[in-house]
Design a protein around this nucleic acid. Structure first.
Lengths: 164, 164
DNA sequence: GGTTTTATGTCAGCCATATTGACTTATTTA
DNA sequence: TAAATAAGTCAATATGGCTGACATAAAACC
């Protein structure tokens, strides 16, 4: 076992570079999420509520099943969060016209306002990072992040994030 | 309020670009963390244990206070996790020689083995993303991530991730 | 038209990870 | 010697996941 060192395939694939990416991803994600978390606490909500608000804002009229698929959680986990948001008038549910079993999700005005508040917080931080890093860096940021996504869902997710 | 649109300062700072970064960060982080989470479940551990193993591996002999600072959690939260790791022989605590109040943390052989297993999983995924994206993209990835970190801790974190 | 599948919801219980607050012990520093 | 610091502990609470079992309504199948 001794003396066998892994060959160094190329400069940016060395262990240190990979570790650096892992650590930066951890620290960046943590700080990025912390600010909206604080804002959410004022409403008695958590980040799970934020995710629902975000995706409903992004895809008004999406079904519960589609939301579950995006979030990759169980319906039981979603139910409490979604129930609260509906109960407190942030999200509205409408029966599907094509398939009346579906409950299509929409933000109310109140929901839109909260979502906008949270989105503004994240846009501010993301904009600062983009501005400091520059347009080329941003393109690289996207490319690497996309590469971290599970191969099986990669195309679907890329289509989603690129859609208007 | 009507008709006032935010001026578009530059192409890569438009709302859509900022949203795209936010969403990719969410999806990428989620998938990146899922694989080690699975491996950890075999040992009855969670990602909190992983973080401890990672940072102790990175800074053998770091103090509990330093670890708390890196993790940004309370000592009560750390205590259970660290207690388990110490109790099951993954982490070893040694009294500091300079300051004997300190409990300096080290991985045991068992701890090193587990940490290496987890690190290999993450390296594999990060390497795939780096390879597909290319070296320039990786540099951009780092720059944007660094920009997302709280300004107050930014320098400290950058120093940390860049240190050998 | 009857059966099966699907979309959604709900109840109950469990687990992991975080929090706050109060208090203890050992050791260092002033 | 008194005060501050490093670490640990007890107790209570919140959040966000999970599994399993079951219910209802509507659509799809044959």
């Amino acid at each position: 076992m001794a003396d066998i060192k892994p060959s160094t395939p190329s400069l940016f694939l060395r262990e240190e570079e990979l570790r650096k990416g892992t650590e930066l991803l951890y620290f960046a994600y943590r700080d990025f999420i912390a600010e909206p978390d604080d804002a959410l606490r004022k409403y008695g909500f958590g980040r799970a509520h934020h995710r629902v608000l975000h995706f409903v804002a992004r895809r008004p009229g999406l079904s519960v099943a589609d939301l579950l698929d995006l979030l990759s959680i169980t319906k039981q986990s979603l139910s409490r969060v979604l129930g609260t948001l509906v109960g407190q008038g942030y999200v509205r549910q409408e029966k599907g016209t094509r398939d009346r079993r579906q409950r299509l999700l929409y933000l109310t005005e109140k929901g839109s306002a909260l979502e906008a508040e949270l989105a503004a917080i994240q846009r501010r931080r993301m904009a600062r990072a983009y501005r400091e890093a520059g347009a080329d860096a941003v393109a690289g940021f996207w490319r690497v992040l996309a590469g971290l996504i599970d191969e099986s869902r990669r195309e679907e997710i890329e289509r989603f994030v690129n859609e208007a």
